[in-house]
C-alpha cells in the first residue's frame, strides 16, 4: 500500500474515532500517529475539531485546550524525533 493511502486511511480512521469513541481514544491515537508519521500536521486540525466539540471557555486559551496542547506536542515531537535513535533509523 502506498504511503498516500496509508496516510489517508489513518486520517479517515482518526476523524471517525473522534465521533464514534470517547475523547481519550482519539487523543491516544493522535499521539501515537504523531510519532509514526514524520510530519503529522493534521494533528492540529484534529485538535481544533476536538475543541469545537468539547471545549467551552471565555478566552482563546480556555476554549482551545486540545489545539494548544497539540501545538506544543507537534513542535516537541520534532525535538524528540531528532534525539531518539529509533526515528533516525526509520
Amino acid at each position: 500500500m502506498s504511503s498516500f493511502w496509508k496516510r489517508s486511511g489513518t486520517d479517515i480512521l482518526l476523524f471517525l474515532s473522534i465521533f464514534l469513541f470517547p475523547w481519550w481514544i482519539p487523543l491516544a491515537l493522535l499521539i501515537i500517529f504523531l510519532f509514526v508519521f514524520p510530519f503529522f500536521a493534521e494533528l492540529l486540525l484534529f485538535g481544533a475539531i476536538l475543541d469545537a466539540l468539547y471545549a467551552s471557555g471565555e478566552n482563546f486559551l480556555s476554549s482551545h485546550p486540545f489545539f494548544i496542547g497539540f501545538f506544543a506536542l507537534f513542535l516537541v515531537s520534532f525535538w524528540v524525533k531528532e534525539r531518539v535513535i529509533y526515528f533516525q533509523r526509520s
Binding site: F39, A41, L75, Q88
Partner: peptide, 28 residues
C-alpha cells in the same frame, strides 16, 4: 547519534504550526 547531525526545529513544521494558529485565531 553524532552531535553534528542535530538540527534545529524544521522550518516547515514551525511554519505549518504558525499557519494553523493564525487560521484558528482568524476563525475565532
Amino acid at each position: 547519534l553524532l552531535p553534528n547531525r542535530r538540527r534545529s526545529l524544521p522550518r516547515r513544521a514551525l511554519l505549518a504550526a504558525l499557519v494553523f494558529l493564525l487560521l484558528l485565531f482568524l476563525l475565532e
